[in-house]
Design a protein around this nucleic acid. Structure first.
Lengths: 362, 362
DNA sequence: ACGAGCTAGTTATACGTAAAACCGGGATGG
DNA sequence: CCATCCCGGTTTTACGTATAACTAGCTCGT
């Protein structure tokens, strides 16, 4: 075939119209195509596709297949994924939307999602929704690949409307299961986690509890406040103080100082919506001359590496972030396979360490 | 054209061979193509392409362009990126290879790279090289997109050989600038950082120094050890003890215990190759009844959020991780624009906090 | 002996986009 | 008054792959 006589990456030599080569300036030395491999192996391009696609059993003889593989190796052939994606109409790529990776929870979530994806032969593209400044482009353009589906954390709220418009199968993480149009949801049983914290502190005799809450309007934090109230309902204990803070140590310290120095009786325990906040609360206690856990018990949420780096080590609620990512990816795979939507809730567990103790002055 | 008469997502009606639709099972309700938009707007597909590509000035009249935009909006048209990538032979996508995102340094590095990429209208795909178990697929397959270039941390060593074979423009981060085939390199001035640490401790009167080193064979850690030796050369101080540890709190604590309880005179200061290790060292000190910084000074490396969460706050070397990511991405963009390769070195700075103090028993 | 079935391939599309080349017709210039 | 240029498009083609449909040659059962 005339078209097959051309050199790798060169235009053909017919008299027809010539197009300048529109490759990137660094075209990686004109990659070999399946046609180049075919020519080198003396077979048709279709045969190369068959062999490379592992679908050649009973279609191509072993010697021919080996010749193709040899030629491919020789030429350093790698299939052009853009072409494959176009042909197949699917990319085996999922988009993961999270607020920020510098938050360890989401980094772990990504890790789990990536692992589950790899098991399915799927890639993961990230869209860290730009909460701060910076350009906030179309998530789909930002993820420069066509996508098969999307997994989104409800905390990446600012990107969600764009994403719904994408019309792709969507798995929501940590979102209100009551009111979501997602194909599936994966949640943590945050309410149970908060109940465990409350029971733990009640058992230690605490009656006056402070809540250092995340100053973020997100389902998971609303659930925590409600669950805490529920758990203390009908007991001798109560939330005597609630302070809101951004999710970092500094903000946590200041919120804890407010909680500990405000009017009324001082809490004997602080429940914090995150380990960072708890670390801040510990610093606040130290500043105020309170010992943890003797004078003040502190609990966190997340079980970051930080929790065991602190002194005393933090009593906290372990959130299985990787499991969330894995479950989310598996749910997406199920949806893509046409299986019915599901709402998964993963258990969380209190990890009692040394930052909680019997209530002081009981 | 007969081909233009077809319904969205349907095959044409000619008598020719019919192929079953090979789209994903969840084909997102058969997305509109540029041809559909063209038909709706009463123009040719080429015109749609012109208008959507923002290259229509002087080629398409304003009313026509507006009609196209209207039709596109109406149909929810989004260009098929796989097709665009195939056509253009470039994807505006870069691959970032890092060891793990759960390491805050690399999470920040990613953040910076993603920001710089967004400024160039480029997307970033991650390949967290699987240091542990799990499937370790071809990085290029894992990133299910064709790529314009690669940015790789030298710490993701296990993936590097595959990557070089990809033949893509490569920017190396934190790698030996002497011996790399990368198109550009971005490094931190780690040696200077270690010199600053050494000077700081020398100034505080420390003479016996322990080094809690990362048990990872990577350029950055080799540089640290060498720089530390250099800095102490010709002074009254010396490294009296070196212990290696994995980069986590627990390993750090055990290494520090070895360093503090081993034979010979006890170090009065521990220089740690990471904040996690330093946190472990602080725990070791507490276990051994040593006060930080009164009895033992401890320094870290990284300046993680952890550094200010600890008590006392950690003296450490701030590594501008985001700047590394940004510089790496900018270097890649420059390489792709055909600009000459460069070797960038970014400054690092000591942050003196409370975990270091005058040498005990001087 | 001969058609059916199998083997080992080949041929012919089509995916959706970008853009070079082409083209009708009105304005313009000499 | 005719050649030229510009405007506003259209036609055509190629990117590289996957796969349905076709086919030549061979085997085998009856």
């Amino acid at each position: 075939m005339a078209a097959d006589e051309r050199e790798v990456g060169q235009g053909d030599d017919k008299g027809g119209p010539r197009w300048p080569t529109v490759r990137g300036r660094h075209a990686a030395a004109a990659r070999a195509t399946s046609r180049d491999v075919a020519r080198a192996a003396g077979v048709s391009q279709a045969t190369v596709s068959l062999v490379m696609g592992e679908k050649w059993r009973g279609r191509v003889s072993e010697p021919t297949a080996e010749a193709v593989r040899g030629a491919a190796r020789e030429l350093g052939y790698r299939p052009n994924l853009a072409a494959r994606n176009l042909r197949l109409g699917r990319t085996r790529t999922a988009l993961l939307v999270v607020p920020a990776l510098t938050n360890d929870f989401f980094a772990r979530l990504y890790t789990g999602a990536a692992r589950a994806a790899a098991e399915h032969g799927v890639g993961v593209v990230l869209y860290p929704s730009p909460g701060g400044t910076g350009p906030a482009p179309d998530p789909f353009a930002s993820a420069r690949a066509t996508l098969d589906g999307v997994i989104a954390s409800s905390m990446a709220a600012d990107a969600l409307t764009d994403i719904r418009e994408g019309g792709l199968p969507l798995v929501m993480l940590d979102s209100d299961p009551e009111r979501t149009d997602a194909a599936a949801t994966v949640n943590l049983d945050i309410a149970d986690g908060m109940h465990q914290v409350a029971r733990h502190l009640l058992g230690l005799g605490h009656r006056r509890i402070g809540h250092i809450a995340a100053g973020i309007d997100s389902w998971t934090f609303r659930v925590r406040a409600r669950a805490l109230a529920d758990a203390l309902q009908g007991t001798a204990a109560a939330v005597v103080r609630t302070e809101h803070a951004a999710l970092d140590v500094h903000a946590g310290r200041r919120a804890a100082e407010r909680a500990l120095t405000g009017p009324g009786p001082r809490p004997t325990a602080l429940i914090c919506d995150g380990d960072m906040l708890a670390a801040g609360a510990c610093k606040a206690a130290r500043r105020l001359g309170l010992r943890v856990p003797d004078d003040l018990s502190v609990t966190g949420f997340d079980d970051l590496p930080l929790a065991t780096a602190l002194e005393p080590e933090l009593t906290t609620v372990r959130l299985p972030a990787e499991a969330v990512g894995e479950a989310g990816m598996r749910a997406l795979m199920a949806v893509l396979d046409g299986k019915p939507a599901e709402a998964t809730a993963l258990p969380v567990g209190l990890v009692a360490r040394r930052s909680t103790g019997p209530a002081a002055g009981k």
